[in-house]
Design a protein around this nucleic acid. Sequence first.
RNA 1: GCGCCCAUAGCUCAACUGGAUAGAGCAUCGCCCUUCUAAGGCGAGGGUUUCAGGUUCGAUUCCUGAUGGGCGCACCA
Length: 587
Amino acid sequence: MKQQIAQILTDVVQQLKDQGIIPEDLTPRINIENTRDKAHGDFATNLAMMLTKAAGMPPRALAEKIVELVADKPAVVKVEIAGPGFINFFVNDSAKFAIVEKVITEKADFGCCNVGQGKSVLVEFVSANPTGPLHVGHGRGAAYGASVANLLSVAGFKVSKEYYVNDAGRQMDILATSVWLRYLSICGEEFTFPSNGYKGDYIFEISESLKAEFGTTLKKTALEVFAGVRADEGQVDGDKEKHIDDLIVKAKNLLGATHYETVFQAAVDSILSDIKQDLSGFGVTFDQWFSERALMETGVIDAALEKLQAADKIYEKEGALWFRSTDYGDEKDRVVVRDNGLKTYFASDIAYHFNKLERGFDLLIDIWGSDHHGYVPRVKAAMTAMGTNPETLEVLLVQFAILYRGGEKLAMSTRSGQFVTLRELRDEVGVDAARFFYVQRKSEQHMDFDLDLAVSKSNENPVYYIQYAHARICRVLEQAIEKGYSLDVQAGLVNLEVLESEQETHIATELAKYPEIVARAALSYEPHQIAYYLKDLAHALHSYYNASQFIVEEDNIRHARLTLITAVRQVIRNGLAVIGVSAPESM
RNA sequence: GCGCCCAUAGCUCAACUGGAUAGAGCAUCGCCCUUCUAAGGCGAGGGUUUCAGGUUCGAUUCCUGAUGGGCGCACCA
């Protein structure tokens, strides 16, 4: 319907050009909005106001001119000018209800569109370091990323979802060393655990299984481990960073390469498989788990650096290699190879994005925590230097969820082992409520997550409101059958003209909005729009439910009403699927 | 100190990307179950959109500045 009006207006614009009222080279954007107030008709355009300058006419006068030129269309019953120069379109009911047939025919495909034009896109998200279980902060990125991926897929993109596994680097050494030290204490050694080590209970579990599998073959005495190690924080001249670095060296030397690798791999495998299970329990899956170690081993980093070198964007200073990111607007140049010969994290990130490009994606989406925002310019700089349009990379930032419990803000730190895990959240709140809660907010919006509220008042969570609407419809349809009626959507579709109540036309209008909401939400990466839409649709349904009886004697009315709510059920299902929430048949 | 993000009803958040009288939920106060699930519906109250300027037919939205909050400013990952 909206497209029809757009077509009418496009024709009008052409006529205005032909009549010399507006310049030939002007191509105004035809803007048609769904009216908020039904006194304003069904659709409205601000075209007259937008062209007022180009035409040199006051908006209302121009609006009158436009209305004269609007071709007669059976679907449009009335066109009028209102307010400062809006043109309001009133659509007849049978045109409004046409959407029902579309929903019924297209089923799960209703709402799909092709704004993505089949372009391939890689969505990388979560990518938490495998140094511990996921916490609720990661949950937001997971819920958001998964929904964005669904949205893009529905909007006609070819989507691939990826998790980048940072299984290399110092943090991983700290992890492996932490595991080993806990293993030593299980073996009976006594010492003070480093303040910079990982202290969570999950470390013990990994150590326990090491002990179970390898007995004491990995054991060394605390005396030899701590001999010559620089003091920890809290001791005289202590430094927690130096302390842990020395312990890492000791672990590698005392264990030898093979045994160290055993501990390291046990730690990574255990944590990563835990993360995978956790995410899958949260309804979040990936097509690839991309290992940073694999990246290093296959020489991609060197290839990427060579590419930058060839573009003359690398130089040497003070023994290190620098990337000229300031050429592309970054604040300062960035080191890619340190003076000790080690490549920086940034170097592997350049390589990772280089690799993504090599895989031939049309669009790369990275979803990061907002604390990494300062990192965006340098990665984009690297993309540009490698000869890619920086807009090929879209970085979406997700703000942290600030957790409250008992009115207290919860401090979270992976290192200290004090955090609310995603798993706890799932257990307490449930997957549906948690997913909905996360995705309900715009991603860049700061978000308060009150655990007490989410748990104690879980029945008032809006997700249940929507699911309830779905379950209600299912129940009504069951009842109809129990009463001996048939569910005949064809009979319903031919009788749609009997629908005339305010609630019924309102529902038809809401249904018609869904495809454009999907398209807009996808292009702006905003799944929260789906959540809000579903709340509106559910409200329309509940309101209808209270106002009308669906299972009535008259066949044509009954068929029409049951068909209408069947369409609502379909759209609720489609929308909930996008945001990863289930659509229960009963509650 | 510099940079990015945010600020909307008592609370948590929307606002079709510059449009008409800024909307929902929670909380508060009325009403509606002999009817397909009351996890529901109908209605009321609640706002100088943090503040001060600017751009224009028109600003919550864009620009400048101020205030308050979050985050970032490594040869760490």
